[in-house]
Simulated assay, not measured.
Amino acid sequence: MGIKLGANHYGKAETRVVAVRRHPDRHEIKDLNVSVALSGDMDDAHLSGDNSKVLPTDTQKNTVFVFARKYGIGEIEEFAIILAKHFVDSQPSVHHARVAIEEYAWDRIALPSNGIAHSFARSGTAPVRTAVVHYDGTKAHVVSGIKDLIVLNSTDSEFWGFLTDELTTLKETNDRILSTVVTAGWRHADTTADPHRADWGASFREASRYLLAAFADTHSYSLQQTLYAMGTRVLDHRPELCEVQLELPNKHHFVVDLTPFGLDNANEVFIVADRPYGLMHGSVLRDDAPDAGPAWS
Protein backbone atom coordinates (compact mmCIF):
# COMPACT_ATOMS: atom_id res chain seq x y z
CA MET A 1 0.00 0.00 0.00
CA GLY A 2 1.46 3.33 -1.10
CA ILE A 3 1.69 6.56 0.84
CA LYS A 4 1.32 10.03 -0.62
CA LEU A 5 1.22 13.61 0.59
CA GLY A 6 -2.26 15.04 1.04
CA ALA A 7 -3.57 18.58 0.96
CA ASN A 8 -1.39 21.01 2.88
CA HIS A 9 -0.79 24.68 3.51
CA TYR A 10 1.46 26.79 5.70
CA GLY A 11 1.70 30.41 6.77
CA LYS A 12 2.14 32.98 9.51
CA ALA A 13 -0.65 33.01 12.04
CA GLU A 14 -1.84 35.93 14.17
CA THR A 15 0.36 38.83 13.13
CA ARG A 16 -0.80 41.66 15.38
CA VAL A 17 -0.59 45.02 13.65
CA VAL A 18 -1.79 48.40 14.91
CA ALA A 19 -1.84 51.30 12.45
CA VAL A 20 -2.39 54.92 13.42
CA ARG A 21 -3.56 57.46 10.85
CA ARG A 22 -2.60 60.94 12.06
CA HIS A 23 -4.84 63.88 11.14
CA PRO A 24 -4.22 67.42 12.45
CA ASP A 25 -7.19 67.27 14.82
CA ARG A 26 -7.55 63.56 15.51
CA HIS A 27 -5.94 60.16 15.18
CA GLU A 28 -7.62 57.01 13.86
CA ILE A 29 -6.57 53.53 14.92
CA LYS A 30 -6.79 50.13 13.25
CA ASP A 31 -6.05 47.10 15.43
CA LEU A 32 -5.85 43.83 13.50
CA ASN A 33 -4.91 40.18 13.89
CA VAL A 34 -3.83 38.84 10.49
CA SER A 35 -3.32 35.16 9.60
CA VAL A 36 -1.95 33.98 6.25
CA ALA A 37 -2.02 30.47 4.79
CA LEU A 38 -0.43 29.60 1.43
CA SER A 39 -0.57 26.48 -0.74
CA GLY A 40 0.61 25.43 -4.19
CA ASP A 41 3.67 23.77 -5.70
CA MET A 42 5.45 23.06 -2.44
CA ASP A 43 5.41 19.30 -2.12
CA ASP A 44 9.21 19.10 -2.13
CA ALA A 45 9.37 20.95 1.18
CA HIS A 46 7.53 17.99 2.75
CA LEU A 47 9.01 15.16 0.71
CA SER A 48 12.69 16.08 0.59
CA GLY A 49 13.15 19.21 2.69
CA ASP A 50 13.73 21.37 -0.39
CA ASN A 51 12.63 24.89 0.62
CA SER A 52 13.34 26.58 -2.72
CA LYS A 53 9.63 27.22 -3.35
CA VAL A 54 8.72 28.23 0.19
CA LEU A 55 8.19 31.88 1.04
CA PRO A 56 9.25 32.14 4.71
CA THR A 57 6.52 32.86 7.20
CA ASP A 58 8.73 35.65 8.55
CA THR A 59 8.47 37.30 5.12
CA GLN A 60 4.69 36.96 5.28
CA LYS A 61 4.71 38.75 8.64
CA ASN A 62 6.90 41.53 7.26
CA THR A 63 4.57 41.89 4.28
CA VAL A 64 1.66 42.64 6.61
CA PHE A 65 3.61 45.46 8.27
CA VAL A 66 4.99 46.89 5.01
CA PHE A 67 1.59 46.84 3.30
CA ALA A 68 0.02 48.52 6.33
CA ARG A 69 2.45 51.39 5.76
CA LYS A 70 2.45 51.33 1.96
CA TYR A 71 -1.30 51.04 1.34
CA GLY A 72 -2.74 51.95 4.72
CA ILE A 73 -5.48 49.92 6.35
CA GLY A 74 -8.99 50.82 5.34
CA GLU A 75 -11.66 48.12 5.36
CA ILE A 76 -10.29 44.74 6.37
CA GLU A 77 -11.76 42.96 3.33
CA GLU A 78 -9.82 45.31 1.06
CA PHE A 79 -6.58 44.79 3.00
CA ALA A 80 -7.04 41.00 2.94
CA ILE A 81 -7.56 40.96 -0.84
CA ILE A 82 -4.46 43.11 -1.40
CA LEU A 83 -2.37 40.72 0.70
CA ALA A 84 -3.78 37.56 -0.87
CA LYS A 85 -3.27 38.86 -4.43
CA HIS A 86 0.30 39.83 -3.62
CA PHE A 87 1.28 36.39 -2.35
CA VAL A 88 -0.26 34.53 -5.30
CA ASP A 89 0.64 36.95 -8.08
CA SER A 90 4.24 37.52 -6.97
CA GLN A 91 5.28 33.92 -6.25
CA PRO A 92 5.01 31.25 -9.00
CA SER A 93 4.93 28.42 -6.47
CA VAL A 94 2.00 29.95 -4.54
CA HIS A 95 -1.30 29.02 -6.18
CA HIS A 96 -3.72 29.87 -3.39
CA ALA A 97 -3.74 32.28 -0.47
CA ARG A 98 -6.08 32.49 2.48
CA VAL A 99 -5.97 35.66 4.55
CA ALA A 100 -8.08 35.88 7.70
CA ILE A 101 -8.35 39.12 9.67
CA GLU A 102 -9.91 40.01 12.99
CA GLU A 103 -10.44 43.69 13.81
CA TYR A 104 -10.74 44.96 17.39
CA ALA A 105 -12.69 48.14 18.10
CA TRP A 106 -11.47 51.09 20.16
CA ASP A 107 -13.69 53.90 21.49
CA ARG A 108 -12.56 57.49 21.79
CA ILE A 109 -12.28 58.91 25.29
CA ALA A 110 -12.28 62.52 26.46
CA LEU A 111 -10.45 65.06 24.32
CA PRO A 112 -7.02 65.64 25.91
CA SER A 113 -5.71 69.07 26.83
CA ASN A 114 -3.65 69.45 23.65
CA GLY A 115 -6.84 69.41 21.55
CA ILE A 116 -5.88 66.42 19.41
CA ALA A 117 -8.21 63.41 19.74
CA HIS A 118 -5.65 60.68 20.31
CA SER A 119 -6.96 58.76 23.35
CA PHE A 120 -8.84 55.48 23.12
CA ALA A 121 -10.33 52.73 25.28
CA ARG A 122 -10.64 49.19 23.99
CA SER A 123 -14.34 48.67 23.31
CA GLY A 124 -16.06 46.41 25.79
CA THR A 125 -19.26 46.19 23.75
CA ALA A 126 -18.33 46.00 20.08
CA PRO A 127 -18.02 42.50 18.59
CA VAL A 128 -14.90 41.43 16.73
CA ARG A 129 -15.19 42.17 13.01
CA THR A 130 -13.85 39.41 10.76
CA ALA A 131 -12.96 38.83 7.12
CA VAL A 132 -11.66 35.73 5.33
CA VAL A 133 -10.40 35.98 1.75
CA HIS A 134 -9.38 33.13 -0.55
CA TYR A 135 -7.60 34.00 -3.81
CA ASP A 136 -6.41 31.56 -6.48
CA GLY A 137 -5.03 33.91 -9.12
CA THR A 138 -8.42 34.49 -10.74
CA LYS A 139 -11.21 34.63 -8.19
CA ALA A 140 -11.47 36.06 -4.70
CA HIS A 141 -13.96 34.49 -2.32
CA VAL A 142 -14.78 36.99 0.45
CA VAL A 143 -16.61 36.22 3.69
CA SER A 144 -17.20 39.12 6.08
CA GLY A 145 -18.52 38.62 9.57
CA ILE A 146 -18.53 39.12 13.31
CA LYS A 147 -17.76 37.09 16.41
CA ASP A 148 -18.25 37.53 20.16
CA LEU A 149 -21.56 39.38 19.69
CA ILE A 150 -23.52 38.72 22.92
CA VAL A 151 -27.29 39.17 22.63
CA LEU A 152 -30.26 38.39 24.87
CA ASN A 153 -34.05 38.49 24.67
CA SER A 154 -35.68 38.47 28.13
CA THR A 155 -39.00 37.18 26.71
CA ASP A 156 -40.67 36.21 23.40
CA SER A 157 -38.89 32.85 23.44
CA GLU A 158 -40.49 29.44 23.85
CA PHE A 159 -39.41 25.82 23.59
CA TRP A 160 -41.96 23.02 23.63
CA GLY A 161 -43.23 20.11 21.55
CA PHE A 162 -39.80 18.49 21.37
CA LEU A 163 -38.99 14.78 21.29
CA THR A 164 -38.92 13.03 24.64
CA ASP A 165 -37.75 9.63 25.83
CA GLU A 166 -37.09 7.94 29.15
CA LEU A 167 -34.03 10.17 29.71
CA THR A 168 -35.74 13.51 29.07
CA THR A 169 -35.97 15.82 32.08
CA LEU A 170 -36.26 19.21 30.37
CA LYS A 171 -39.59 20.93 30.96
CA GLU A 172 -41.51 22.68 28.21
CA THR A 173 -41.69 26.46 28.47
CA ASN A 174 -43.55 29.25 26.73
CA ASP A 175 -41.53 32.07 28.28
CA ARG A 176 -37.78 31.87 28.65
CA ILE A 177 -34.64 33.95 28.28
CA LEU A 178 -32.95 33.44 24.91
CA SER A 179 -29.28 34.38 24.87
CA THR A 180 -26.44 33.55 22.54
CA VAL A 181 -22.99 34.64 21.40
CA VAL A 182 -23.21 35.21 17.66
CA THR A 183 -20.52 34.07 15.28
CA ALA A 184 -21.66 34.98 11.78
CA GLY A 185 -20.20 35.17 8.30
CA TRP A 186 -21.75 36.46 5.10
CA ARG A 187 -20.41 35.54 1.67
CA HIS A 188 -20.18 38.13 -1.08
CA ALA A 189 -21.54 37.02 -4.45
CA ASP A 190 -18.97 38.92 -6.52
CA THR A 191 -15.77 36.91 -6.94
CA THR A 192 -13.77 39.46 -8.94
CA ALA A 193 -10.42 40.21 -7.37
CA ASP A 194 -10.75 44.00 -7.25
CA PRO A 195 -10.31 45.03 -3.59
CA HIS A 196 -12.12 48.33 -4.25
CA ARG A 197 -15.18 46.78 -5.87
CA ALA A 198 -17.54 47.28 -2.94
CA ASP A 199 -18.35 49.54 -0.03
CA TRP A 200 -17.19 47.00 2.50
CA GLY A 201 -17.88 49.22 5.50
CA ALA A 202 -21.50 49.94 4.60
CA SER A 203 -22.11 46.28 3.80
CA PHE A 204 -20.71 45.22 7.19
CA ARG A 205 -22.70 47.80 9.14
CA GLU A 206 -25.97 47.00 7.42
CA ALA A 207 -25.57 43.21 7.60
CA SER A 208 -24.82 43.50 11.31
CA ARG A 209 -27.83 45.77 11.81
CA TYR A 210 -30.21 43.34 10.11
CA LEU A 211 -28.84 40.42 12.12
CA LEU A 212 -29.61 42.24 15.34
CA ALA A 213 -33.00 43.45 14.14
CA ALA A 214 -34.05 39.90 13.26
CA PHE A 215 -32.91 38.59 16.64
CA ALA A 216 -34.96 41.27 18.41
CA ASP A 217 -38.04 40.96 16.18
CA THR A 218 -38.41 37.19 16.05
CA HIS A 219 -40.77 35.50 18.49
CA SER A 220 -38.66 32.40 18.87
CA TYR A 221 -39.88 28.82 19.21
CA SER A 222 -36.31 27.52 18.94
CA LEU A 223 -32.83 28.91 18.47
CA GLN A 224 -32.79 27.18 15.09
CA GLN A 225 -35.79 29.25 13.99
CA THR A 226 -34.04 32.41 15.17
CA LEU A 227 -30.90 31.44 13.23
CA TYR A 228 -32.89 31.09 10.01
CA ALA A 229 -34.69 34.38 10.60
CA MET A 230 -31.39 36.21 11.12
CA GLY A 231 -29.83 34.85 7.94
CA THR A 232 -32.97 35.50 5.91
CA ARG A 233 -33.24 39.10 7.10
CA VAL A 234 -29.70 39.85 5.96
CA LEU A 235 -30.20 38.31 2.50
CA ASP A 236 -33.55 40.07 2.07
CA HIS A 237 -31.90 43.47 2.46
CA ARG A 238 -28.33 43.04 1.17
CA PRO A 239 -28.28 42.01 -2.51
CA GLU A 240 -24.47 41.87 -2.64
CA LEU A 241 -24.52 38.86 -0.31
CA CYS A 242 -25.45 35.31 -1.28
CA GLU A 243 -25.02 33.22 1.87
CA VAL A 244 -25.01 33.66 5.64
CA GLN A 245 -23.59 31.13 8.07
CA LEU A 246 -24.29 31.37 11.79
CA GLU A 247 -23.03 29.58 14.87
CA LEU A 248 -25.22 30.17 17.91
CA PRO A 249 -24.52 28.60 21.30
CA ASN A 250 -27.53 28.53 23.59
CA LYS A 251 -26.46 30.39 26.72
CA HIS A 252 -28.89 28.70 29.08
CA HIS A 253 -30.58 30.76 31.79
CA PHE A 254 -32.44 28.58 34.29
CA VAL A 255 -35.02 29.86 36.77
CA VAL A 256 -33.68 29.48 40.31
CA ASP A 257 -35.89 27.51 42.72
CA LEU A 258 -36.44 29.87 45.64
CA THR A 259 -39.19 27.84 47.35
CA PRO A 260 -36.77 26.58 50.07
CA PHE A 261 -36.58 30.22 51.16
CA GLY A 262 -40.32 30.83 51.07
CA LEU A 263 -40.15 32.89 47.88
CA ASP A 264 -41.76 32.53 44.48
CA ASN A 265 -39.82 33.24 41.28
CA ALA A 266 -41.93 34.39 38.35
CA ASN A 267 -39.14 34.33 35.73
CA GLU A 268 -37.16 37.04 37.49
CA VAL A 269 -34.07 35.39 38.97
CA PHE A 270 -31.89 33.06 36.88
CA ILE A 271 -28.69 31.09 37.07
CA VAL A 272 -26.53 31.09 33.94
CA ALA A 273 -25.17 27.68 32.98
CA ASP A 274 -21.62 27.89 31.69
CA ARG A 275 -21.51 24.37 30.18
CA PRO A 276 -22.64 22.14 28.68
CA TYR A 277 -24.64 24.19 26.19
CA GLY A 278 -26.63 23.66 23.04
CA LEU A 279 -24.84 24.69 19.85
CA MET A 280 -26.66 25.52 16.61
CA HIS A 281 -24.95 25.93 13.25
CA GLY A 282 -26.67 26.65 9.96
CA SER A 283 -26.40 28.23 6.56
CA VAL A 284 -28.98 30.37 4.75
CA LEU A 285 -28.38 31.00 1.06
CA ARG A 286 -29.99 32.23 -2.11
CA ASP A 287 -31.24 29.69 -4.68
CA ASP A 288 -28.87 31.19 -7.26
CA ALA A 289 -25.84 31.53 -4.97
CA PRO A 290 -22.59 30.86 -6.86
CA ASP A 291 -20.47 27.92 -5.82
CA ALA A 292 -18.81 28.62 -2.49
CA GLY A 293 -15.50 27.09 -3.53
CA PRO A 294 -13.14 27.33 -0.55
CA ALA A 295 -14.92 30.35 0.92
CA TRP A 296 -15.86 28.79 4.27
CA SER A 297 -12.64 26.86 4.90
Rank of each mutant, 00 (worst) to 15 (best):
V34A: 03
S220D: 11
G49M: 02
A37K: 12
M1E: 10
V133N: 01
H86G: 04
D41H: 13
K147V: 11
I146Q: 10
D107Y: 03
H196E: 10
L178H: 02
A295T: 12
V151L: 15
E102F: 04
T226N: 07
V99D: 00
V255S: 00
L32C: 07
V244Q: 05
F79H: 06
H23D: 15
E158Q: 10
L285P: 05
G282K: 09
T183N: 12
A126K: 09
G49K: 08
F204A: 12
Y228Q: 13
R108Q: 05
I150W: 11
D264R: 12
D31T: 05
L170R: 12
S90V: 10
E243F: 02
N62P: 00
K30W: 11
R238V: 13
L149N: 11
L152A: 09
L212G: 08
V34N: 04
V17R: 10
V20F: 08
S39V: 00
D257R: 01
L5T: 11
K251D: 10
E206F: 10
T15N: 14
L246D: 07
E14M: 15
I150Q: 10
S123E: 14
G161C: 03
K30A: 15
Q225S: 08
D107A: 05
A207H: 07
L5F: 15
V99L: 08
N267I: 00
K171I: 01
T259D: 05
L279C: 05
D44H: 04
I116R: 15
G137D: 14
L248V: 02
R21M: 06
G262A: 03
I73S: 04
N51M: 06
D288R: 12
V34L: 03
T130A: 14
E243L: 15
T232L: 05
G231Y: 02
S222P: 12
M280H: 03
R233F: 06
N51G: 09
F65C: 13
R22C: 15
E158F: 05
S90W: 00
I81V: 14
S93I: 00
L211G: 08
L149M: 13
P294Q: 05
F159E: 03
V256E: 03
L167A: 04
N8T: 03
E78L: 00
P92C: 11
P56N: 11
M280S: 06
A266I: 04
L279M: 14
N174H: 13
R22F: 13
W186C: 07
I76R: 06
S35F: 00
E158D: 10
R176A: 10
A131P: 04
L163K: 04
V255Y: 01
G72I: 15
S48E: 06
M280Q: 09
H27C: 09
L111I: 07
E247D: 13
V142E: 04
N265K: 09
V133K: 07
V132F: 05
R286C: 07
D175A: 11
I76H: 01
H188L: 12
R205M: 05
M230S: 04
F67W: 10
K30Q: 10
P276G: 07
N51A: 08
L111P: 05
H253R: 03
R238G: 01
